[in-house]
Amino acid sequence: MTAYLLRRLGQTVVTLFVMSLLVFIGLYMIGNPVDVLISSSATPQERQAVIAAMGLDQPLWFQYWTFLSHALTGDLGKSFVYNQPALRLILSRMPATLELAFSALVLALVFGIPLGLLAGLKPKALVSRVIMVSSILGFSLPTFWIGLMMIMLFSVKLGWLPASGRGDTVNVLGVPISILTLDGLRHIALPALNLALFKISLVIRLTRAGVIECMQMEYVRFARAKGVSEARIVTVHVLKNTLIPLITVIGLEFGSVIAFAVVTETIFAWPGMGKLIIDAISVLDRPVILAYLLMTVVLFTLINLVVDIFYSVADPRVRLGEAAE
């Protein structure tokens, strides 16, 4: 297990290095942040001073070297715009995004698994057909459009739920959390549901496919031959086998939800990382973009690790040491 963790850590460091190099060169080629940041009325002298202060007058390799040597000490540079350390900026926004992504994940599982189970057990029933058609809608309708429609309906027309912000938060270990207050829950409901819709559809389809496959397996027939009740067959024999592919996909999806909740965060003015990165890109705030993408790599690695561990718990045939070899 320790060897396995060390190997994973080594892989992560390499990935981080390659990612930083690619992003650094990419950002260098996209454009000069000075053009965006400094007002056009600035004198050439002022302009030169700012460029020198930011270190942008140095050659690319030297800029990267400076970044790398600082990064090794945990300093990912200061935001050009906020003049704060980029990493701290991102970490301050991360709880909001994590909370949103986590809520969406819970919704996806709470709705997706039972509906998928139902659709898989009675594939020909009317209710199953309704579930499957709805899941196609969940897949194909664009997230931003559904988000806007939800605001129109629940916030504007019915006035049930607020359309923007996080609402009241409670500090847990210095981290603000919305879902622990009623007002916060009211605020997170719409964005979380919006973000979850696609995932619900995905979970429904995966669960249904898994259930249909498992129900035809010989071990289900054998369990019936033992006299085991249908309820136990579904909840123990079938569900546990269905969870295995589900864990993998959900893990990957959770990562992408965290990293790219941009659209939902923008529509619902949710103060998370997604909104920060959009703003950073529009003004070419290089340190923030770079720090954000590196953070994403770390998150993905962590999630994959957790997924692997869950996977080995759910499927006894998988052993962690072997999986990495």
């Binding site: 071990y219 054998f222 031959a225 033992k226 024999h237 546990k240 086998n241």
Partner: peptide, 15 residues
């Protein structure tokens, strides 16, 4: 009671 043909398939792999 009943026993089936393929012993690789009759036992649930995850239990």
């Amino acid at each position: 009671a009943m026993i089936f043909q393929d012993p690789m398939m009759t036992l649930n792999p995850v239990l």
